[in-house]
């Protein structure tokens, strides 16, 4: 078993590395996502300047912004493979599991890097008070994991439909609706809302697990 899993890890890492390298050369996706996640809180701040937002509302707004930022960048991962015709090569070289985990790790890295800038900006501009930093971190990691997994699966699907990934937001938004709502509740708790955050965190973890299962089984079907 050991050599097999080593081969798999190596392959997944190769996919991950390739994606990061390609991204680093162009920095197109990173720039677009980072700019959006800066522009969105500013827009929100403009229109909500005089409002006093509750922590619950801030939590929900944060994840709406992060979701739409993700919608700009994440479907690119597969669309660019289809556009440059490299998806066939990828299929030949690596097993679908390796591609799935490699791509998901790439998406996760992209999300984390952009959120390093986006979340502090959001907190500063919308005047949120972070009462519970570890909770915010846990929610962010759980949320990013779910976004990365689902966008890998749905991105691969959308890239094969007509219009090359244009369908992605329409496909991803309803799937992630309960997930984003839960993340909003948990983030609201981190901003000081009085809700039970353990339940919300558990739901986030359960959704992540379900996505791992659906992703591993479904991606093989979509990719082959």
């Amino acid at each position: 078993m050991k050599p097999n899993s080593q081969v798999f890890a190596k392959a997944a890492f190769a996919v991950f590395q390739k994606d990061l390298l390609a991204e680093w050369r162009s920095r197109a996706t990173l720039g677009a996502v980072a700019l959006f996640s800066l522009a969105a809180p500013i827009t929100l701040g403009f229109s909500l300047a005089q409002q006093k937002l509750t922590p619950e509302a801030q939590g929900a707004l944060l994840w709406s912004v992060l979701f739409f930022a993700a919608c700009i960048g994440l479907p690119r991962a597969f669309v660019k493979e289809e556009e440059s015709g490299t998806s066939a090569l990828l299929r030949l070289h690596f097993g679908s599991d390796a591609v799935f985990w490699g791509k998901a790790a790439g998406q996760m890295a992209l999300l984390m890097v952009t959120q390093l800038a986006a979340i502090p900006t959001f907190i500063l501009l919308l005047g949120a008070r972070v009462g519970n930093v570890p909770l915010l971190l846990a929610v962010t990691v759980g949320g990013d994991l779910g976004l990365a997994l689902s966008s890998t699966l749905i991105g691969a699907m959308a890239a094969q439909a007509r219009g090359r990934g244009a369908l992605f937001p329409a496909l991803a938004a309803p799937i992630l609706l309960p997930f984003l709502a839960t993340l909003g509740v948990a983030t609201g708790a981190a901003f000081g809302a009085r809700v039970d955050s353990t339940n919300a965190l558990m739901v986030v973890a359960a959704f992540d697990l379900a996505l791992v299962g659906a992703g591993v089984l479904g991606f093989e079907l979509v990719w082959k």
Partner: peptide, 23 residues
């Protein structure tokens, strides 16, 4: 694609209508 998305749909239906209100 239909198969994968139909399974995801059931996931959302369960989370959306039964799990979300629990939190």
């Amino acid at each position: 694609l239909w198969t994968v998305y139909a399974v995801l749909g059931v996931l959302v239906a369960c989370f959306g209508s039964y799990v979300y209100r629990q939190i």
